[in-house]
Amino acid sequence: MNQPQQNAVTLLTEPVEHFLNYLKSEKQLSLNTQINYRRQLYALISLASEVEFTNWRNLDSSLVRLLISRSKRQGLQARSLALRLSALRSFCDWLVKNGQLTANPARGVLNPKQGQHLPKNIDIDEINQLLNIEYNDPLSVRDRTMLELMYGSGLRLSELVNLNCRELNLTDGEIRVLGKGNKERKLPLGRESIKWIKHWLSMRDFLVPKDDALFISKLGKRISPRNVEKRFAQWGVKQGLSAHVHPHKLRHSFATHMLESSGDLRAVQELLGHADLSTTQVYTHLDFSHLSDVYDSAHPRAKRGK
């Protein structure tokens, strides 16, 4: 690499490294998010020479579209393109904040359209079949409690494994959960969840806990996400379910069943911990026509000339 090329690459990589350090030290985003942003931003840097782009200060919306177009030509699918654009938007927000750009040129570029690949939910009869576990050994009771809590409160897998005993308030029937972006939310616990948590806590000491983790492995350590996935899949087979049981499928089933019963999209959004209502709308198979029907039938000022 000759000197001018090396200088151009440095002009692009140095701000990215500062941004990634900001994500780690100040925003304290998850390691997975940091890795994804690094991968996407360096992929864009690798395309810079193709579009004669050498300095982030010169980035405009036409260049953003060109970079995304070149990424698509490389074979990236819509979901990956959206992730790349999201990383670039966040980086440009940081550049604006630090006075290196006057406006974010990636904000006006729309995400590529993508098909919705949503997990099928488990119907209520099969949920009851899954939860009809009669074994009373510590590991079975632990798994039964995790299944109940996952479906009963719509937790993410990461939220489930990171729960601590101190975050339980069984008297008031509440639990504190740390979700995405370190955002804490308080969730109600159902009667069955409380019953099974108490049952599990009466057996938890048999596994000699190493810390305050609510759910632990047979070695006493905090249970891993992979272990939860494996155990749920095994129970699905053992209980005779027709479909594979995965933690996210239980969360999806919670959302679908709650929405079917209540029709309250905002409440389901809060329970799931979604920052954006549109995420909940997609997640629960809603489309605009359904929302329109709900609005027309339920809202006191919704007649709209009918």
Rank of each mutant, 00 (worst) to 15 (best):
N121G: 15
P188F: 10
Q77E: 15
R89E: 05
H248V: 04
M150P: 03
Q114K: 15
V161S: 08
R304E: 14
K195L: 13
A298W: 02
K306M: 03
R142C: 04
L83D: 01
K218W: 00
R222W: 05
A103W: 03
K210M: 05
K218C: 00
W200F: 11
G115P: 00
W94V: 08
L85E: 08
L59V: 08
G273C: 08
S297W: 00
N7P: 00
G115A: 13
H246M: 07
T10Y: 09
G240Y: 01
L31H: 11
L214R: 04
N164L: 06
L83T: 12
L23S: 08
L29S: 12
T280S: 08
G263C: 06
N132D: 15
H252I: 02
L76V: 02
N58Y: 08
I175Y: 06
T256R: 10
L59R: 09
E126K: 15
W196I: 00
I45P: 06
T279Y: 01
E26I: 02
A48V: 02
L201G: 05
N182D: 07
G181C: 12
G305M: 11
L88Y: 09
R144S: 13
R222A: 12
Y22V: 01
D93I: 00
A275L: 04
W56I: 02
N182C: 03
R38E: 13
A43Y: 09
D264Y: 05
P138G: 04
Y151P: 12
P300N: 07
F215K: 03
N98W: 11
L147W: 05
S69A: 15
L12C: 06
V161R: 10
N182R: 15
P119R: 08
E270D: 09
F19T: 05
S292W: 01
L44H: 09
R84K: 14
N136E: 15
G75S: 07
R176G: 00
P112S: 06
W200E: 03
G263T: 10
L83K: 12
F91M: 09
R304F: 03
S80K: 11
A106P: 04
E192L: 13
Q40C: 14
R89D: 09
I194A: 06
G236P: 09
R226L: 11
S242A: 14
V96R: 11
L81I: 10
Q77M: 09
V161K: 11
L259Q: 06
V208N: 15
I175W: 05
T13D: 09
L250S: 12
R38M: 01
V208R: 14
L66E: 15
A255E: 03
D296V: 02
R70M: 09
N36W: 00
K210W: 01
R73Y: 02
P225Y: 07
L189I: 02
V16L: 13
N55I: 02
H117M: 04
L81F: 11
A267W: 03
N111R: 06
L130Q: 05
N21F: 05
F254D: 02
H290W: 01
C165Y: 02
N55W: 01
P300W: 03
S289D: 15
L170N: 08
E26K: 04
N132K: 10
P4Q: 13
L219S: 12
L31T: 08
F53P: 05
P247G: 09
R191Q: 14
A78M: 10
V109E: 02
K195C: 01
M258T: 12
R176D: 06
N162P: 00
G179W: 10
